[in-house]
Design a protein around this nucleic acid. Structure first.
Lengths: 286, 286
DNA sequence: CAAATAATCGAACAAACATTCCATATTGAC
DNA sequence: GTCAATATGGAATGTTTGTTCGATTATTTG
């Protein structure tokens, strides 16, 4: 056999390339795997950058990029880059009328796809709602209140529980003391008995309201513990006990509501509290 | 007046540049008008091509391109080209507009308001991503797989845990048997040992990947239990074990990611499974 | 119609580019 | 542990790049 290369199956579009990378990633040497991960995670950078700039970002040598391209059958880095550019070329016009395309894209042909589309659209609507319905001054004040707490008690159950568990995770990462209430049955009362007015609570409940959440929020409020709450209705019994309360109505799809907008709100509140607390700490030091 | 150039209003984004070109188009010399027309008609070419290749396509000299750029206040052709590249780079132009209108509402005056706006915008972008990146056929197939399971095992930890806890809540309401894994330490192994190929698992893990989740997904896969997984990178070790896997990249605000898009996806999958199961049941009865 | 001004061309240039090559380091087989 | 094979880093290389600049052509002005 001659040295002449028989036309290998060089990936001709981005999807084929992505598939090829994923297929061979396990058997790739260290640096090439590094490039592979970078390429799939930052495709735009590959499309626009120069070999030198991309190499610096991916923390490899430029020559490694060339080797990577050759590993996948390309002549050099430049020809691989064409794939990434073509991807951007083809995808760009889709943004022009994206909302239109959402209506008649592949998804709607399949029942499950229509369901996914429905929830995505509902989440969009819910998010728009958040931006307009949340009073920024109240938000600021709530963040300030929670930031001054020694321990933040997170009260939530059932449908609201994912929110509090995510906030607990984030608060933990941000080194802010918090305590979730509502997980294991029985010990809630003991936990809450430790709460003092120097602490604070964040209670979440959507209708139908979990009676324990309402009860516990009321209990804390009477004991002088400031409560911030999140509900989906101004008539929620939670609003009685709360110093500040927010109303977020999630749009529904076919009667089911996701937590997309509430999640964005919860995360924003969490970060706002952390930011506020950082500022309070620096003021104390001066 | 000195020769020193006072900072002209050099267009900083594509829309501004487009407006400037259209405004001055009439008073442009012949060749420069030629370039202007080509630039607006083939913006992608300008973004990706070299000065030489573009000049050839537009039937002008490369130096004309430089002069064109300088006429509009740019230092050279390269800096003008950046505008055309940025246009393709920007992920969510549709929401840029929406944000611009949000940008000068009450929220932005306050720091916490800006944080909330940021997370809402990030969630919008993430949702767009979901709609385009999830393959509807794969989604349908995954829903079908999970619908046929006797028990659905939900594997998630840390940042992913809120997703599985919400799905568990929803599955419970929909009377679909499921079992969350990863809550209490110790009993996970016992729970998973009961899983059979007639069951199925849904595993979620975002980087940094929890090793237990990866391990447990792999364990189930080797035992013949079909696994569907959700990750934020094609490089996730979870994708190896999964029959079907989905990649959802949450846009971040200031380095923090919310779960808005993943929540919408999780809810859509949950409802799709329920819908699928309802249909399977009615077929059996016929 | 002639002079003056502006626009264009195309060659020349230095900087940046992708690529190659080879010495060194790492990995895997025995 | 030793050796062979592969992978890597980094400098050298020849090419291509964007840009500049003087000569040439077109356009305007008196």
């Amino acid at each position: 056999m001659s040295d002449a290369e028989v036309a290998e199956d060089v990936p001709q579009d981005f999807d084929a390339l992505k598939a090829a990378i994923l297929e061979r990633k396990a058997s790739l040497p260290k640096r090439l795997k590094q490039v592979a991960a970078y390429a799939l995670d930052h495709p735009d950078e590959i499309a626009f950058g120069t070999a030198a700039s991309i190499a610096a970002s991916a923390e490899v040598q430029p020559s490694t990029l060339v080797r990577f391209a050759q590993h996948f059958g390309f002549e050099g880095f430049s020809s691989l880059q064409q794939i990434f550019r073509a991807r951007l070329r083809e995808r760009a016009p889709a943004y022009e009328d994206r909302l239109k395309s959402l209506g008649d894209n592949d998804h709607s042909r399949l029942e499950s796809g229509a369901i996914l589309n429905g929830f995505v659209a509902a989440a969009h609507r819910s998010l728009d709602n958040v931006a307009t319905s949340v009073d920024p001054e109240k938000f600021e004040a709530a963040a300030d209140l929670l930031a001054r707490a020694e321990t933040i008690y997170l009260i939530a159950r059932r449908r609201s529980y994912p929110l509090s568990s995510y906030m607990a995770y984030a608060f933990g990462k941000l080194k802010i003391r918090c305590q979730t209430v509502g997980t294991a049955a029985g010990i809630d009362e003991d936990l809450l008995s430790m709460a003092s007015p120097r602490d604070a609570a964040f209670a979440v409940s959507f209708s139908p309201y979990a009676t324990e959440t309402v009860h516990q929020a009321r209990l804390l409020a009477t004991r002088g513990v400031p409560v911030v709450s999140l509900t989906d209705s101004a008539f929620s019994p939670l609003s009685e006990s709360a110093r500040f309360w927010f109303e977020i109505v999630e749009a529904d799809h076919a009667g089911f509501r996701s937590l997309s907008a509430s999640m964005a709100f919860a995360m924003a509140l969490t970060v706002a509290v952390a930011e506020r607390r950082r500022r309070l700490a620096s003021q104390h030091m001066e």
